[in-house]
Design a protein around this nucleic acid. Sequence first.
DNA 1: AGGATAGGTAGGAGATTGCCTACACGTCAA
DNA 2: TTGACGTGTAGGCAATCTCCTACCTATCCT
Lengths: 133, 133
Amino acid sequence: MTRTGTGTGPEVGTPDGVPVETLAAREDQTFAALANATRREVLRLLREQGPQPVQALADRFAMRRPSLSEHLKVLREAGLVSEERAGRQRIYRLEAAPLADVQDWLHPYERFWRDRLKGLGDLLDRMPDDAET
Amino acid sequence: MTRTGTGTGPEVGTPDGVPVETLAAREDQTFAALANATRREVLRLLREQGPQPVQALADRFAMRRPSLSEHLKVLREAGLVSEERAGRQRIYRLEAAPLADVQDWLHPYERFWRDRLKGLGDLLDRMPDDAET
DNA sequence: AGGATAGGTAGGAGATTGCCTACACGTCAA
DNA sequence: TTGACGTGTAGGCAATCTCCTACCTATCCT
């Protein structure tokens, strides 16, 4: 797969000057990290019970510790967790910033389910996103 | 991997009586569908340009039509799109309801990035989710 | 009826994922 | 210092993903 952008424009960058390639890659990494139930569960544990060392997390899963370590690596590289070294332990902490990007991603879809639930959603199909009044 | 729930409780069902297994499976399907950049782009196209037949969508991607058909199948089975037959065409339409579930999933994380951006996020680490007030 | 158009399905190849067991490395305690 | 502890990494293996090229079915037009 080559084109992940609009599929049309030249697409050199954003208004901020941030290369789109980077943004798209980060988005991809975030969604990929969230695609796994174990990793989502790790995020939940860190959220509900605060920062924890690896073994405490591993105890909650039916898999060997090295496997969980790999999941933590994916989360770390996606920026969804951070690690702090404390003696021979590494304390993992939730870093929710990338989830804010997911919420931003969701935003333009919001009116679709809100309007539809109010029963007047079919209008949307004749009035697409880029044709606002 | 066996446990995708809390990792602790008996977890027989929800307050609504809906089996948790079904909910977790649906969540998994949704996140898995969103894990692919092509599929996210399809959703964006349907959102910005309204319902379209398969070929119109396929024209936007650097891949063969059958491959896109498979992506549409994934999206369909995740409930993110619906198809309506019109002659020999099949019009695909965005169905955003599962995205509302994603937003619900995001909610408990929200205060993490909001508070942290305000610079007082470290408090959260001493006051985890299930210890409110 | 016969050809063209729209799109789903089958089956296969190559890459990626997710698990495992072994092992390496740094830290702490005796 | 020596051994135990806490984690990450290497390498292997089976399953899944994502793309492809046929191929099939259904609809429309002449």
